[in-house]
């Protein structure tokens, strides 16, 4: 199955003081796919996302973006510029700026010192911000300090900050952790909406959420890829059951 991949890793390995957190992972993300990454704690899911977005440097291996740009030597902000956007587990927004200002910082096409000093946000961008406010359902809170939002709203704002940059790839780490059922449902729909145009990798522990919204699931275990398929296939796989059950038993 060789569909065009937007992101592809080639034998990526990460070591922390001799411990192999990620071990020769070959992974590929197809365009416009909602791709879930699951696995027991310590499987290396988050570390793998860290490699993709440049936070952690791979010891070996390569990451190809659109098959022609190699990412492992690039810095975080360069990777972000290329259109790969990362969201961390804990919501991280700028609490002392308003919801609108948070999005405004993210949306700027030029992010240097001079443009920040001299350029005003033009009409086009302002409209785009409004559009995204609607998408993440925070229009009514646009002028509020982001620090005053609820946990779920912060998560959405952060997803909104990624979306306004119109990235090609979104990397999300447990976006629904700590959300109510209603919020989780809303987030799932938002992700579905996003994958009409963009590709998304989600690291998730909430199996119910994965079952409802996944298109493709990759299971990681002890730093390596265990299997890949639909959620149906994954659930029926014996190795996966063993990994999860084995961990539960111990």
């Amino acid at each position: 199955m060789k569909t065009t991949s937007i992101l592809r890793s080639e034998k990526v390995s990460v070591e922390f003081a001799g411990f192999k957190a990620v071990n020769e992972v070959n992974f590929h993300l197809a365009a416009c796919q909602l791709h879930f990454l699951i696995g027991p704690n310590g499987a290396g899911k988050t570390t793998f996302l860290d490699v993709l977005c440049g936070k952690v440097k791979a010891k070996r291996g390569k990451v190809w973006y659109k098959e022609n740009v190699e990412l492992t030597k690039k810095k975080e902000h360069q990777i972000a510029d290329l259109g790969i956007s990362r969201k961390f587990q804990a919501p991280s927004i700028f609490p002392k700026l308003t919801v609108y200002e948070n999005l405004e910082l993210a949306i700027q096409p030029r992010k240097g010192v001079w443009s920040s000093l001299f350029e005003k946000t033009n009409k086009d961008l302002q409209e785009k911000i409004q559009h995204h406010l609607q998408l993440i359902e925070l229009q009514s809170r646009a002028e509020q300090m982001a620090g005053a939002l609820s946990h779920g709203e912060k998560q959405w704002l952060e997803i909104g900050m990624m979306l306004v940059q119109e990235p090609n790839v979104l990397l999300l780490d447990e976006p629904v952790a700590g959300m109510t059922d209603v919020e989780t449902e809303k987030t799932g729909k938002l992700l579905k909406e996003i994958t009409k145009k963009q590709s998304v990798i989600v690291v998730e522990h909430d199996m119910e959420f994965v079952r409802t919204f996944s298109e493709k699931v990759t299971v990681m275990h002890q730093g390596a890829l265990l299997m890949e398929g639909t959620m149906q296939e994954v659930q029926e796989d014996e190795r996966v059951a063993e990994v999860y059950l084995g961990q539960r038993a111990s």
Binding site: E76, H77, A80, S85, S92, F94, P95, L105, M161
Partner: peptide, 10 residues
């Protein structure tokens, strides 16, 4: 307030 986040928005 969030240097890391800023880095990841470019």
């Amino acid at each position: 307030d969030g240097e890391n986040r800023l880095r990841f928005i470019g």
